[in-house]
Design a protein around this nucleic acid. Structure first.
Lengths: 345, 345
DNA sequence: CTGAAAGCGCTTACAG
DNA sequence: CTGAAAGCGCTTACAG
């Protein structure tokens, strides 16, 4: 009773924000005109527009993003749901999308969900409250509830990176199984016969599983079998590659060549092999996936499979924009991949 | 006239969203109770809570984030304004902050502004419309207008990474000048006398300038002078390091050791030197900055200066949370750095 | 524990 | 070109 303000006053009492209303008053115009002077300046006479702009400056007015979005029912937001925000290949997708979305005034929001499809579903549920105008997902493996939720939202959905059989809406990516097959073929062509596969945390990486499938199938078709097949745990991928390589070398298994499910693993493997005194590729050939920048700068430079990751992001963004504009967009785009042969094979 | 709906109806007509109102009706409770069942379940009887939850499930209700934030005047958002979202050291800061913020329900928003202080100011202006409860910036160099804007917003502001003389609010980082000095001392201690400095795009990297200042000052104090001082342009940093190193080697300049302003440059330099047949460190010593994971995995492993970048992000987030809670937080935290000596020096 | 009503700061169809 | 008024979907002080 003593602490509180004596007279009942509106809840707004304590807010110190400058509102459009105040701008309009200061400029001597209606709020509508003030609003238009900001959003559609061409609809307002120069005289009033200038007065509004001056008022904005004087008052230090900042449009409230929540009020605007609530009233207009347009979020100008595109969300990503990815296994990781900043690591591996994902940040390049976000980067590519941001390059096309940001200049158009879209806000990009990224949510990470790496542990399971259920976690992804939960993340999706939360993020949909931001009423995104488009959603970009990784891969085509999702829970049925998540698919239903996305369908109900009636917004363009891009499943990126991996090409799947059933997709929710738009699917932009490449066949990771084909990439695995191509890796095996490359190694076989080079004359390697005793092939190994190396991955990390593959339980939650469906794309790596597909690469492995493709890799193994070609080996089998060639009448051979895989010599070692290691799934390293742990998140530090360079280190995982090094550990796995050490393990293989210590085991005495006679491997010719290893296909690593990512370039990070390949870097670690190359590093460990070199330190163990192995000659690459004579004693051991190593091949990676994704063709990260580092691969070309390792000595020896690492053979890898280049995926157009930035372009995937760009295309995903364009797909969403096209659909928002009401135009059709292909349901499926295969961006392909390319084997970059370097010194490690 | 023919196309439009004949009878004038509320603007909401076309919205297909499920609202709290509808949830409340279905559950047979007031909207207040429905709202509380979601936000503060402990304040609602189990019976009604269950009914509300069932209604939410049946209807597929998603709380509108804009309406909620507008009404409550709490954004639960922390924003970052950084030179880059996903590259170099910045993504680790975001990662560190996200680790502490996300579990508490805060949404992290990142804006990139890399070209100038003016661009940063513009980005700040825009992002403040989201009414963040805290802002994290990189470095302590900002325009006066930006400082004023941030002060007027009356929210905790953390300037991260670099320790400066004048900071807006909270400053968490390290002295990049001291780091540069330490690098020079390390190289001098190792017996190298003909030292070089290598950076890229230093115009917009105040921290790199400070490292250079420190580096040069120690060399001068030792009665020596820097042999080469290259500022490479271009964004591909591995490649920039390689190009600069090639340039130095081709020029015939007799350099003992090079301090690179980032590990990416050092990786490229090591790679180029190796390919040119130089022995590292005998023919040329190379040292980096930041101690990225890759540095330990290069062969030879790269000597670097470790900066606690994830921890900086974590601390920044904690600083903001502490201040939001109304508690005091130190104005300045020096997180220090550590020289990690490896094989390239 | 429960709820009616006011208010958050915008946008927009409509009428001048 | 300009503006009054209703509405967006929530939250919350207050009173039962």
């Amino acid at each position: 009773m003593t602490e509180k303000k004596p007279d009942k006053q509106p809840r707004t009492g304590t807010r110190s924000t400058v509102t459009l209303q105040q701008v309009a008053e200061r400029a001597g115009v209606g709020v509508m005109t003030a609003s238009r002077a900001i959003k559609s300046p061409h609809l307002v006479s120069e005289k009033l527009r200038l007065r509004v702009q001056a008022a904005i400056r004087d008052l230090g007015y900042l449009p409230n993003e929540y009020a605007g979005r609530l009233a207009s029912n347009r979020s100008k937001i595109v969300v990503f749901i990815l296994p990781s925000v900043s690591s591996g290949v994902f940040r390049f997708i976000v980067q590519g999308a941001e390059e096309v979305l940001s200049p158009l005034g879209y806000q990009v929001m990224v949510t990470a969900a790496s542990h399971s499809l259920e976690e992804e579903e939960a993340a999706c549920w939360k993020i949909l409250g931001w009423k995104p105008e488009g959603v970009i997902l990784s891969g085509t493996d999702h829970t049925d509830a998540m698919r239903a939720m996305l369908l109900a939202a009636e917004i363009p959905v891009v499943e990126a990176l991996e090409l799947g059989d059933q997709s929710i809406d738009i699917n932009i990516g490449l066949s990771h199984q084909d990439a695995g097959r191509a890796a095996a073929r490359h190694l076989l062509d080079r004359g390697y016969k005793r092939l190994g596969f190396l991955s990390s945390n593959m339980e939650n990486d469906y794309r790596a599983q597909r690469r492995r499938d493709g890799f193994l199938s070609v080996i089998k078709e060639a009448g051979l079998s895989v010599i070692c097949d290691i799934n390293q745990s742990g998140k530090v991928v360079f280190e995982s590659g090094a550990l796995a390589a050490k393990q293989v070398m210590a085991s005495g298994i006679d491997v010719d060549a290893i296909f690593c499910s990512s370039d990070e693993l390949a870097v670690g493997a190359v590093s460990a092999a070199l330190r163990a005194g192995r000659k690459i590729p004579q004693d051991l050939a190593i091949m990676g996936f994704n063709d990260l920048d580092i691969s070309a700068h390792m000595v020896p430079a690492i053979t890898s499979i280049r995926t157009p990751r930035v372009e995937i992001g760009r295309l995903a963004a364009e797909a969403i924009l096209t659909r928002i504009a009401g135009d059709p967009y292909p349901a499926r785009i295969d961006v392909g991949f390319e084997i970059i042969v370097r010194e490690t094979t």
